[in-house]
Design a binder for these strands. Structure first.
Length: 222
DNA sequence: ATATCGATTATCT
DNA sequence: GATAATCGATATG
């Protein structure tokens, strides 16, 4: 008998190879279910031959029209229409006159719900990130490295993410220049806290982070 | 170490 | 006209 071939789904993940996009069905659920499983995946930006990649270490869930803090709370508008579209797409908004922030749409089409990507651990293309952030590389010191992608506005700048360029983009397509891929990494421990920086519904436990990861946003308690 | 503040604009009331 | 899912600089203990 010939050796049966392994199904494609069981093919070995290849660390360092940015293949295997997370598929749309993965996102077509309540963001509270998606969040713990999305932690540890890689956000990848391709510009020609240049790649930037960062591991997702912090997320916040926004639940749609039932969530007072969500952009979808008041219903569908021109600004937030991506939230009501198909799962696995980029919702990019502009805030405080300065910063872009990136969400991934969740839930099946027609229902709003998303995950705000709040922090990444830089993995690849670090020189590109420093350039995009207009920061000097201080010999790779941790304090400097953390400034790259520890915060939603910071990581958007480090990955050159703008609403004009990326809003509505499919993050599940291997051909996309902005996508989320699975390299097989599984976080050891996940912590859940309240969301940061919001006025409404501040007590909901909807912030998910990889426990102990130094690239999580916020002040460091050392 | 934490606290306060100013920058600047798309979006909505 | 007010607001906002932020950041970086400055001030102070």
């Amino acid at each position: 008998m010939p050796e049966p071939k392994a199904p494609a789904k069981l093919q070995k993940q290849q660390p360092g190879r940015f293949t295997n996009p997370v598929e749309a069905a993965f996102y077509a659920r309540d963001p509270r279910q998606v969040a713990p499983q999305l932690l540890g995946k890689l956000l990848v930006r391709r510009d020609g031959r240049k790649l930037r990649a960062g591991r997702i270490v912090e997320l916040e869930a926004y639940l749609g029209i039932s969530d007072a803090a969500a952009h979808a709370a008041a219903g569908k508008t021109k600004r937030n229409e991506v939230l009501f579209g198909p799962p696995g797409h980029a919702y990019v908004y502009f805030i405080y006159g300065f910063h872009y922030c990136l969400n991934v749409s969740c839930e099946p089409e027609g229902k709003a719900g998303s995950l705000l990507i709040r922090a990444l651990e830089p993995i690849s293309g670090i020189d590109e990130m420093y350039a995009a952030r207009d920061l000097d590389q201080d010999h790779g010191r941790m304090t400097e490295l953390r400034k790259l992608t520890s915060g939603p506005g910071r990581l958007a700048e480090a990955f050159s993410i703008t609403r004009e360029r990326d809003n509505g983009k499919d993050l599940t397509s291997s051909r996309s220049d902005l996508k989320i891929i699975d390299d097989g990494y599984i976080p050891e421990k996940i912590t859940i806290t309240t969301r940061i920086g919001i006025q409404k519904a501040p007590d909901e436990l909807l912030r998910y982070l990889i426990a102990g990861n130094p690239f999580v946003s916020g002040r460091k308690t050392r």
